[in-house]
Simulated assay, not measured.
Amino acid sequence: MTELHEPAAFRAALRQWLDENDLTPAEGEHSLDAHQAQHVRVLAALYDAGWMRYGWPESAGGLGGPDVLRAIVGEEVVGRGLDHPGPYSMLDVLAPTLIDYARPELAAEMVPRLLSGAETWCQGFSEPGSGSDLASLTTRAVQDGDTYVVNGQKVWTSFAQYAKRCILLARTGGPDVPNHEAISAFFVDLDSPGVTVRPLRTMHDVDEFCEVYFDDVVVPADRMLGNPGDGWRLAMDLLPYERSTCFWQRIAYLYSRFDALVEQVKRQGQVVDTDMGEAYLALHTLRCRSRATQHRLATGAKLGPDTSVDKVLLASAEQRLFDTVHDLLPGAIELDDTQWRTEYLYSRAATIYGGTAEVQRNIIARRLLDLGKE
């Protein structure tokens, strides 16, 4: 193991490099287009300097080392406000999935494009009527010789308007095949004929989410990820990445926003009170839980329904933080057109995105606490 494969040495060297290389975003640029341009800029710089390649296997263009090195890069970059957690976190969800399920030569070709910012990818899972009940999805892929023809619709597809590729779930099995065994996964080029992307503007006035329509889209059979019927397994294997490194970056961002709140409260001559203490405690509890999850994943542990606890804690901490902003900064949410307003509105969805709070609590009750279905 080289010196930089040791986490503490890696973090110290990365911090020094970030101090010496100015990747600060342009002042006052808060649009989604600006965030995406900054995301690409940061990835390109990190990749060229080698930092984005650590923690990834050499077979996919990486420099090796433990997975935790990827978490350190994300924490430092997002925590410093150099990149937003949304587009950045997609790396740690989609790249491992492609490495695990794609043909090795396809992963070796494509993963460096994602890590370097040359391409953006998206995740085509949820559908109208098939969000929490993913196994009921209706997008269908029908084999036609050495291709599949895809028809259907996806929704809540983050950053699809910028994406070059999509990891897509589609039904390939017939009506006699159980739902969980009838789903396959594909790596689809979004510039293929028949693909239509329509951004959705949400109540926080950002069109991060999209609808994506597939009308007779032809996908080469060798773009299937895994084997026919492996789609559900791929989705379940993706979940640990979504709730480990991905969460770690989100937590770093929330801590940075907590620090910004403390500074603003002090500037206004207010006292840091118990409300802020409760917000900090919620963040700290979440971080401790996520740290344990990170280390379990690093040791090769199989993550399962226990990550529902992480999801509930994340949603609670995020909403608690921005509720505190609402309480301590009068008018910042209702009257002022500030970043706080956008983030407060976005936090309302924290109990929905990535698995609703109700579903997560049911999983905890039934599968962790064995409380049954009633």
Rank of each mutant, 00 (worst) to 15 (best):
R250Y: 09
A301N: 01
D310R: 00
G226V: 05
T299G: 15
V219A: 05
L32R: 13
G124M: 03
L14K: 10
E343D: 14
V272A: 03
T307E: 07
T351I: 11
T324C: 09
L303W: 01
W248C: 02
T139R: 03
V195T: 08
A12W: 01
P85M: 09
W232V: 13
R257L: 08
E242F: 02
E318Q: 14
W248Y: 04
A45I: 06
V93H: 09
M203V: 13
N227E: 15
K311I: 06
V206W: 07
A349T: 15
P193L: 08
R53T: 00
T196N: 15
A108D: 07
G229T: 10
E58Y: 04
G372P: 12
L303H: 04
R201H: 05
G173K: 04
T147M: 06
D19Q: 15
A279S: 11
N362P: 04
E334Q: 13
L238R: 08
P104I: 10
D207F: 04
Y241A: 14
Q143L: 05
E334I: 15
A12E: 14
M236T: 14
L82C: 08
E58N: 08
T139C: 12
Q339A: 13
A12Q: 11
P7M: 03
S132E: 07
L238T: 15
F247L: 03
A260G: 05
V78M: 09
F214N: 03
R243M: 01
E278M: 13
T120K: 13
R15C: 13
R361K: 12
R11D: 15
V218D: 00
G64A: 05
G79D: 04
Y213M: 09
G354F: 00
L200I: 14
A108N: 12
V177G: 03
Q36Y: 05
L234D: 03
Y88G: 00
Q270H: 14
T285Q: 12
A108Q: 10
F322M: 10
T172P: 02
A170M: 09
I364E: 00
A185H: 01
M276P: 06
F187A: 06
L261F: 08
L190V: 09
V111K: 11
V219C: 14
G231Q: 07
V177E: 07
A301E: 11
V309A: 00
Q249M: 08
Q319F: 02
V42P: 01
Y353A: 09
Y346S: 12
E27M: 13
E278K: 13
C166W: 01
D146L: 06
A26W: 04
R140Q: 14
R113S: 15
S136Q: 02
P240A: 12
L281A: 15
C246L: 05
D323S: 15
L225E: 02
V150P: 02
V73E: 01
P7Q: 04
L106Q: 10
V195R: 11
L4N: 07
A235V: 14
R367Q: 14
H39W: 13
K164S: 15
L239C: 12
T285A: 15
P104R: 10
V212I: 07
W340A: 02
A357V: 15
L23Y: 00
L286K: 06
D327M: 03
S290L: 09
R320Q: 01
S308W: 09
V312W: 07
R70N: 02
G131N: 14
R140C: 13
R103T: 06
G145K: 05
L329R: 03
A298R: 09
L225D: 08
D189Q: 12
T196S: 14
V78Q: 01
R171W: 09
L4K: 06
A37N: 07
